[in-house]
């Protein structure tokens, strides 16, 4: 190994610049957390307990976020319950039952994953909400949000599952064939259980994405701050609340929105760590 002092100047400069760039990524994350903390911390110290209450009346100084936290969770959980089984089974089916369809479907699914969330939201407003409205008014609801989110989650969950199955050793399949196991039995007893940690890890990550999704949910959920009494009731999520009220919020109201941003980042952080654990990755 050559010692640093003997390297030409350009190389030493390069090493320095690269180190700075590497530090920058850490700086961005640190900066985001710091800015949110600086804005929200005094408020959290003085009114922290208040955010867990049920009344959101910024005009009267009441900043209870519980119904919106619940709204975020409800919409995301239902979306995941709808999307995950479809995505996992479809990925397995494409790999082991219809390998000839796999490439074209994955290409289409990649395209789906790139469609902007506003476009999914627009589709929800144009088609889904009127359709649910015919059935049970008002249409813009928890269910509409979950259905749109589910459609957005399926492509990513499918790609993650496909990658997880692709990493299984080929000998499992060969052994199964040699034993003349049925493909369904093989999947159920061997392949899916083996890939389960990676699949679940990927799905947990999608849950984080669903919680953080703003536009699509904002456009189809109805945005009423309330505890939903059925899947057909309108709800407002934390993210939608930020997008709706940031434009005119001032003072404590604005600070409360920063506090909800902090909450979102904390929850996604926890989910990410859970996902690392499940996928057996370690990070420092």
């Amino acid at each position: 190994m050559i010692t640093t002092s003997s390297l030409p100047l350009s190389d030493r400069l390069l090493a320095l610049v690269l180190r700075l760039c590497g530090g920058l990524a850490a700086l961005v994350l640190g900066g985001i957390v710091t800015v949110l903390l600086v804005r929200a911390l005094p408020f959290l110290v003085s009114e922290g307990a208040g955010i867990w209450k049920s009344t959101w009346q910024p005009g009267q100084g009441e900043y209870g976020m519980a119904p919106m936290i619940a709204g975020s969770l409800f919409v995301s959980v239902l979306a995941l319950l709808l999307a995950a089984p479809v995505a996992i089974l479809l990925a397995a089916w494409l790999r082991y039952f219809a390998p000839r369809l796999r490439r074209p479907v994955l290409a289409g699914v990649e395209l789906m994953a790139g469609i902007p969330s506003v476009v999914y939201g627009l589709w929800g407003m144009l088609v889904l909400v009127p359709w649910i409205n015919q059935w049970v008014p008002p249409g813009a609801s928890w269910l509409a949000g979950s259905l749109v989110l589910a459609l957005m989650i399926v492509p990513l969950a499918l790609l993650v599952t496909d990658a997880a199955l692709g990493q299984l050793p080929l000998r499992y399949q060969r052994a199964g064939e040699a034993l003349a196991l049925s493909r369904v039995g093989m999947l159920r007893r061997v392949l899916l259980p083996r890939a389960a940690p990676a699949i679940v890890g990927g799905v947990v990550l999608q849950f984080g994405r669903a919680l953080g999704e703003t536009m699509a949910v904002l456009m189809v959920c109805g945005n009423v701050v309330q505890w939903p009494d059925s899947v057909f009731a309108p709800v407002r999520t934390l993210t939608a609340n930020i997008a709706l009220e940031m434009a005119y919020a001032t003072g404590d109201h604005r600070v409360a929105l920063f506090a909800s941003g902090l909450l979102l980042i904390a929850v996604t952080g926890v989910l990410l760590m859970a996902s690392w654990r499940l996928r057996g990755m370690s990070h420092g």
């Binding site: 990524a25 961005v28 800015v35 953080g212 703003t214 980042i265 952080g269 990070h283």
Partner: peptide
């Protein structure tokens, strides 16, 4: 260790909801 750590930071940045980038961008 440092590569792993930086990888973790990048994963976290990728997981931060976009509306939070909006809040940060507005404030900063």
């Amino acid at each position: 260790r440092r590569a792993q750590w930086l990888g973790g930071v990048l994963d976290m940045l990728a997981a931060v909801p976009s509306i939070v980038y909006g809040l940060f961008g507005y404030q900063f």
